[in-house]
Design a protein around this nucleic acid. Structure first.
Length: 502
RNA sequence: GGCCCGUUCGUAUAGAGGCCUAGGACGCCUCCCUUUCACGGAGGAAACACGGGUUCGAAUCCCGUACGGGCUACCA
C-alpha cells in the first residue's frame, strides 16, 4: 500500500508549534515510507477564518524545510485542497447519507438545543447531548412528518444534517501509537455534519477528504482521539475503508498545566510559533522561533524529540537522519512539556557547527538594527569567538557589543577587585611593548605580552584581568589577545584610557 | 460530572519479566583545564505515583486508587 499522509491545519491564525510537530511527524513518516506528504487547508469555519493565516502556514513549513509534495500551494490531482472550495463534495456526501438513512435533517434552533440540554441536566443526565435518547423529541426528519420536512426544506428553513448514531455498539480500532482504543456508541452524540451555513463540520470534511484524497494514515494530535469514533462511524456509513490512525501526544506548557497555547508564549517568555505573527493588537502578536534567533534545523530536532526518541543515545539529527530513524511505534503516549533549556541547547549545538559565513549573514541585520557600523571582515573574526558562548545568534550583539562599538559599561566591582594604582606604570609599559608587535595578531601579541610579564616582573594573573576589563568592561568573554586582535590599536587606546581614568 | 488517553530523576527520555545497584541527555552542584566566561574533561545530587494481585522473580503483565491531560459546540 502506498503511503499518503496529510497535514490539515485550520487558517485561524499563526501555525502553532504543536502543529509544526504534527507536520514534521507526517513529513518524516511520509519520507521514511517513500510516500506523499499533503497539505490541506481546513477552512470550514468562516467565523474563525483569519486572512494571512494560510500564507503563514506555507511560509512556516518552508522555513522549517518540511514542504509538502502535494496540496494547497503545491498542486496535485486530487484537489482542490482548500475545503471551502469543496462544498459540493461534502453536500453530496451528506445527501447520500441522508438518503441511506445514516443521517438526517435537523431544524432545531439554538434556543431549542439549549433548552434540551438544560432539561437533561436538570433530570440528572451526566452528559446531555443530541443522541438517540432525545432525537425523537427534537425537530428533525426522523421525528417530523415527512410532508412537514419537505415543506420546511422547501421553505428554506435553516437546518443542519446530523449523523445518526445507533446506541449500544462498540467502536474499536487499533491506534498506531496507543494500541487498542474503544468507544461505546451510547456515549456518542449525533454529530452535525453540515452546518446551517452549508459548510461541513470538521468531521464530515475530514473523512470525505481523507477518503477522496486517498489518505492511508492519519497522524494528528491527541485532541482528535475522542472524535475518531465518529470518524470511524462515518467511514462505516459511507462503506469506505478507514485509514490507519496515529494520535500524537500533546505538547504541554512548561509547568505542565494543560496544552501549550499561544498565550503561553508571553506567560513563559518562550516562542510558541515558528515565525512571528502580527495580529491586530500587541496581545495578538507573537515572536517566532526564527525571530528569537533559532535555527530551523534546531527547532525541528528539538520538536522531533518532544514525544519521540530513536532508542539510542544520539540526540543530534539532521532532517535526513530523522527520516531514517523515525518510527511511529516509538512515539510516546503521554504529553511532553516544552523545555526552553533543551531547545536552547539544541540551538547551541547547531550554531557551533554552522559555517561562520552563515552566522555572519544572520548577524548583519541584527548589528545594523543597533546602528553599528557593519564590518564583514571583523565579523568573520568575532563570530567564531562567540558561537561557543551563546545559544542563539540573536544573543551575539549583546554578548559582543564591546567589539562592535564603543565600550559602554564597566563592571566597577571587578575593577575595585583587580585594579591597583601601582600597576598603572607596568601596564603602560606593556602597552608600549604591544604597540610594536607586528603582525598585530593574537598569537604574536600573547608571546610579546608573556615576555613582557617576565621582564616587568609581574604575574599574568595580576595584569590580564585588568586588560580584560579595559577592553570589554567585564570579566567575561574571549581571550584577551583575541579581543585585542579584533580591536586593533584601538584596543590599546582603551587600555590607556582605562589606566588614565580616575 | 461523563467518556477517552496517560503516569520512570526538575524536564524530555532508555527500559518490551531476570542484563536495573534503573542508563545516558538538558538543567543544577563540585572539581580539573584556563587570564575570565564559554567549550572540553572528571565526579555528584536526583525517578519506577500508590495499593493489591500474577510469577521463583515486576519499572516491565492484570486490577483498583490517586493524580494529570484531552474531548464533552452548527470550533478545528
Amino acid at each position: 500500500m502506498s503511503v499518503r499522509v496529510r497535514f490539515a491545519p485550520s487558517p485561524t491564525g499563526a501555525l502553532h508549534i504543536g502543529g509544526v510537530r504534527t507536520a514534521l511527524y507526517n513529513y518524516l513518516f511520509a519520507k521514511k515510507n517513500h510516500g506523499i506528504f499533503i497539505l490541506r487547508i481546513e477552512d470550514t469555519d468562516q467565523a474563525r477564518y483569519v486572512p494571512g493565516a494560510e500564507e503563514y502556514i506555507l511560509d512556516a513549513l518552508r522555513w522549517c524545510g518540511i514542504e509538502p509534495t502535494e496540496g494547497q500551494g503545491y498542486g496535485g490531482k486530487l484537489g482542490p485542497y482548500r475545503q471551502s472550495e469543496r462544498k459540493a463534495v461534502y453536500r453530496e456526501a451528506a445527501l447520500q447519507l441522508v438518503e441511506s438513512g445514516k443521517a438526517y435533517y435537523a431544524f432545531d434552533t439554538e434556543e431549542e438545543l439549549d433548552r434540551m440540554r438544560a432539561r437533561l441536566a436538570d433530570a440528572g443526565v451526566a452528559a446531555p447531548k443530541y443522541d438517540a435518547s432525545v432525537r425523537m423529541e427534537m425537530r428533525n426528519s426522523l421525528s417530523l412528518d415527512p410532508l412537514e420536512v419537505t415543506d420546511l426544506l422547501r421553505a428554506g428553513t435553516p437546518h443542519v444534517v446530523r449523523l445518526r448514531v445507533d446506541p449500544g455498539k462498540q467502536v474499536v480500532y487499533r491506534d498506531l501509537i496507543r494500541e487498542e482504543v474503544r468507544f461505546d456508541t451510547t456515549e456518542l452524540d449525533d454529530k452535525v455534519l453540515i452546518k446551517a451555513d452549508g459548510m461541513p463540520t470538521y468531521h464530515l470534511a475530514n473523512v470525505v477528504d481523507d477518503h477522496h484524497m486517498d489518505i492511508s494514515h492519519v497522524i494528528r494530535g491527541e485532541e482528535w482521539l475522542s472524535s475518531t469514533a465518529h470518524h470511524l462511524l462515518l467511514y462505516e456509513a459511507f462503506e469506505w475503508s478507514p485509514p490507519r490512525y496515529a494520535h500524537l501526544p500533546l505538547i504541554m506548557r512548561p509547568d505542565g498545566k494543560g496544552k501549550l497555547s499561544k498565550r503561553d508564549g508571553a506567560r513563559f517568555g518562550i516562542p510558541v510559533f515558528p515565525l512571528s505573527w502580527k495580529g491586530d493588537t500587541a496581545e495578538e502578536s507573537f515572536t517566532g522561533f526564527r525571530e528569537f534567533g533559532f535555527e530551523p534545523e534546531a527547532v525541528l530536532n528539538f520538536l522531533a524529540f518532544l514525544g519521540w526518541n530513536p532508542g539510542t543515545d544520539q540526540e543530534l539529527f539532521s532532517l535526513d537522519e530523522l527520516v531514517e530513524a523515525f518510527d511511529l511505534g516509538r512515539v510516546h503516549r503521554s504529553g511532553a512539556r516544552f523545555d526552553m533549556d533543551k531547545a536552547l541547547w539544541f540551538n547551541h549545538q547547531y550554531i557551533k557547527q554552522r559555517p561562520v559565513q552563515e552566522i555572519v549573514s544572520k548577524l548583519k541585520p541584527l548589528v545594523e538594527a543597533r546602528g553599528w557600523l557593519w564590518d564583514e571582515r571583523k565579523c568573520l573574526e568575532i563570530v567564531p569567538l562567540f558561537t561557543e558562548r551563546v545559544n542563539l545568534v540573536s544573543e551575539i550583539p549583546d554578548a559582543a557589543g564591546y567589539l562592535f562599538s564603543e565600550l559602554r559599561t564597566m563592571d566597577e566591582e571587578a575593577v575595585r577587585k583587580h585594579w591597583k594604582p601601582e600597576l598603572g606604570p607596568v601596564i603602560s609599559e606593556l602597552v608600549k611593548i604591544l604597540e610594536a608587535v607586528e603582525p598585530f595578531e593574537a598569537q604574536a601579541l600573547e608571546q610579546a605580552a608573556k615576555a613582557g610579564f617576565q621582564s616587568l616582573n609581574v604575574k599574568p594573573g595580576q595584569i590580564l584581568p585588568i586588560l580584560r576589563l579595559a577592553l570589554a568592561g567585564g570579566l567575561q568573554g574571549p581571550g584577551v589577545f583575541q579581543m585585542l586582535q579584533i580591536l586593533g590599536k584601538q584596543g590599546l587606546s582603551r587600555i590607556r584610557t582605562f589606566v588614565a581614568r580616575d
